[in-house]
Amino acid sequence: MLNTKKLQLSYKRYTKNFVEGIKFEDVEETYLESFNRITQIVNLNEIEKDHILLIDLDSIESYNISKWKRDVLVNHGENSVELNKIMMVIFHQCMVQNLYKSRYPKMFVEYTFEDVIKTLIHFTMFGWEKEEIILFNFIVDHFDSRWMKANNWNKHTWFLLELYLQFRNKTIFGTNQNLHKAVREQFKKMDLEYGLIPEELDVYTEVLKHWETPQLDEIKILTDKMSVYHSVLASELGESIEFGDFGYGFYPYEILFLLFVRKQRGLPVPEEFDDFLMNTPEAKMKMNDPEPYPEWDPLLKLIDGFYRKNYPDYIPNQYGELFQN
């Protein structure tokens, strides 16, 4: 049951974290330290040290997250540009990580399964088709490997991936129905870890059955249920596994993606919401259709250029320039 007072207190902590907790000035200082380190490696073309570039992508992501939070969460802006840049960094974490599979086979990946699926559905909402296809192919190629770590407990992530597959008429392991169950079974047969993959998706199961309903009232009921489910877990900020994180806990991107795919199918969607979650600044961000590519983060551009120069098998080399209007 949703406790509205508890939800609002959690939201205050969520916002306060990017004012008094993670201060922008501190994150910016770390970013500038990375700038000096990355610039030296790139200028001297120090290939033996280039794994540092992969590791430092994390500081670029943190910097852009802080800028996004400052602009939207704290100052109530509506521009999603910094969010776009975050997704660009996660994409490059995947592309660069792929180069180290042989060199450092036990290296920890610099992203999570949730991060990758989040990026995929945002590329879809942004209308960045070329990058969406590249990332989807990466997901499929690595799905049953430690480079994707799909043994993941987040129900909304499995919902998003299955909804994406149905929307794009694609499959993983030959299916786009009850994907979480199919993957559990497939991983079990392959003797891969599967215990964290949820057996049921709760409210998302109902949504997946009816997401194409032509009835506005029906989809409004479903989005309200999704909002309550998300809000209850976000109320446990810092404690719940799902929606309890300070980065995306109050950003209802799973609901926004559902609304997006319905619009793309010409189906009606609610235009206004009366709940707390769907009226937060992050929920109210403006996205164009398609979204223009933002100006590259200069450090990300340096890293991408380095890998393009030194590694012919770097995945973006197969596709020419990316993230270009």
Rank of each mutant, 00 (worst) to 15 (best):
K69P: 00
K69I: 01
R70N: 04
R70M: 04
D71S: 15
D71V: 07
D71C: 09
D71M: 11
D71I: 08
V72T: 09
V72K: 08
V72D: 08
V72W: 02
V72N: 09
L73S: 09
L73Q: 10
V74Y: 02
V74A: 01
V74H: 03
V74L: 03
V74N: 03
N75D: 12
N75W: 07
N75S: 14
N75F: 08
H76Y: 07
G77W: 01
G77S: 13
E78H: 13
E78S: 15
E78R: 15
N79V: 04
N79K: 09
N79Y: 04
S80Q: 08
S80D: 09
S80E: 08
V81H: 02
V81M: 11
V81Y: 02
V81L: 07
V81C: 06
E82D: 11
E82I: 00
E82Q: 12
E82K: 10
E82R: 07
E82M: 07
E82T: 01
L83S: 12
L83I: 11
L83V: 10
L83D: 06
N84H: 03
K85H: 03
K85M: 05
K85E: 03
K85Q: 04
I86L: 13
M87P: 03
M88C: 13
M88N: 12
M88I: 14
M88D: 14
M88V: 10
M88R: 09
M88G: 13
M88S: 14
V89R: 02
V89I: 10
V89Y: 02
V89Q: 05
V89H: 04
I90M: 12
I90R: 07
I90H: 09
I90D: 10
I90Q: 12
F91Q: 10
F91M: 13
H92P: 03
Q93A: 06
Q93E: 14
Q93T: 01
C94W: 03
C94H: 04
C94L: 06
C94M: 04
M95F: 06
M95Q: 02
M95A: 11
M95Y: 01
M95L: 06
V96C: 03
V96Q: 02
V96P: 01
V96G: 01
Q97R: 04
Q97E: 11
Q97H: 05
Q97Y: 02
N98W: 06
L99Y: 11
L99S: 13
L99R: 13
Y100D: 05
Y100F: 02
Y100I: 04
Y100N: 06
Y100R: 04
Y100M: 05
K101S: 14
K101Q: 15
S102C: 00
S102Y: 00
S102E: 09
S102M: 04
R103A: 04
R103M: 04
R103H: 00
R103Q: 09
R103I: 08
Y104L: 15
Y104K: 15
Y104M: 14
Y104N: 13
Y104F: 12
Y104S: 10
P105C: 11
P105D: 11
P105F: 08
P105G: 10
P105A: 11
K106E: 03
K106C: 01
K106P: 01
M107H: 14
M107P: 06
M107S: 12
M107R: 15
F108D: 14
F108V: 10
F108R: 14
F108E: 13
F108G: 06
V109C: 07
V109M: 07
V109R: 09
